[in-house]
């Protein structure tokens, strides 16, 4: 039923088509941008063609040009799609799981327990997200896995807060009391009644966050805290463009390809998830629901 409604909404259709495109690119990356023979064992390493530091414009062999350090932009974009999905799905999945678990249990038990857990959540939330992530990656060291840990650590609190509110409301409903009267155990009530009735706002939030997670990961890469140099990652592709964004005197658009391609990839990726999340929210809104 949800899928049918998603297909009927033109905006979410655009989102789905975009997302499908990214999925296909990620799946068929080895065919779209074949790995060079000498890098067979490390396909995420973006090949370099030459040793100069300045970018070179698109050619037949390198349709998106070479960025700073002669890295192939096309290869980086295609394989970077896989990185974007990895970071997005792992971070969203883990932080969602953690948030739902902690938030729902805390709200269901309630009382002092809930109070303590929520103050704990407050502490996490009081850090500016980006700064906290920068500090964590700085402490743990550079690398995509560290970025993922940092993002999960400061993202679960939002989900926990969100589901807690719904659980506090739903746990007062009579069907919860009816389940207890029927002898259903507390964990079973949580899994079978509470979570199915509170999970939708979280899923909507999660699909909206998929995009912003990728942007944040790209930001960390841009700041030099993310993937190691040469790793296929959109954020890093943009960070390579840092010195070339303004072009050269008299030719402001001279190096446009260094920033446009990775920028477009990120924008479209975020857009696709936001459109889907938006449509999801409309569909799940109980006031619109028949």
């Amino acid at each position: 039923m949800v899928i049918k409604k998603l297909l009927r909404n033109p905006l979410s259709m655009i989102g789905l088509v975009l997302l499908l495109g990214f999925v296909l690119i990620a799946l068929f990356a080895p065919w779209i941008a074949p790995t060079l023979e000498e890098h067979k064992n490390e396909p995420y390493r973006v090949p370099r063609f030459g040793w100069g530091s300045s970018p070179s414009p698109p050619t037949k062999e390198h349709p998106m040009g070479l960025t700073q350090g002669k890295y192939d932009v096309f290869y980086g974009i295609i394989w970077g799609t896989r990185t974007a999905f990895q970071v997005g799905l792992i971070v969203t999945g883990l932080s969602c799981l953690l948030g739902v678990l902690i938030g729902s249990v805390s709200a269901y038990i309630g009382g002092k327990f809930d109070e303590v857990i929520m103050r704990f959540v407050d502490v996490f939330m009081s850090f500016p997200f980006l700064i906290a992530a920068i500090v964590i990656t700085a402490v743990l060291g550079r690398g995509l896995d560290k970025v993922i840990i940092a993002l999960v650590l400061f993202r679960w609190t939002g989900y926990a807060r969100l589901i807690r509110g719904s659980v506090l409301q739903v746990k007062q409903d009579e069907y919860i009391m009816a389940a207890r009267a029927g002898g259903v155990s507390h964990p079973a009530i949580l899994v079978r009644h509470i979570i199915p009735n509170t999970i939708f706002p979280v899923l909507i939030q999660a699909s909206m966050n998929m995009g912003s997670i990728v942007v944040t990961a790209a930001t960390l890469s841009f700041l030099g805290l993310g993937a190691p140099e040469g790793y296929a990652d959109w954020g890093q592709m943009i960070s390579f463009a840092r010195n070339w964004v303004l072009g050269s005197p008299g030719e402001p658009l001279k190096y446009w390809y260094t920033v446009v391609w990775p920028g477009a990839a990120i924008v479209l990726f975020v857009l696709s998830w936001n459109l889907i999340g938006d449509a999801f929210r409309d569909i799940m809104d109980p006031r619109i629901q028949a």
Binding site: E174, Y175, A178, A181, P196, N197
Partner: peptide
């Protein structure tokens, strides 16, 4: 066992 007052909130809407 118990029969509840409100037949609208005593049945889980997703079951």
């Amino acid at each position: 066992q118990i029969i509840f007052q409100d037949p609208f909130s005593s049945l889980d809407p997703r079951m």
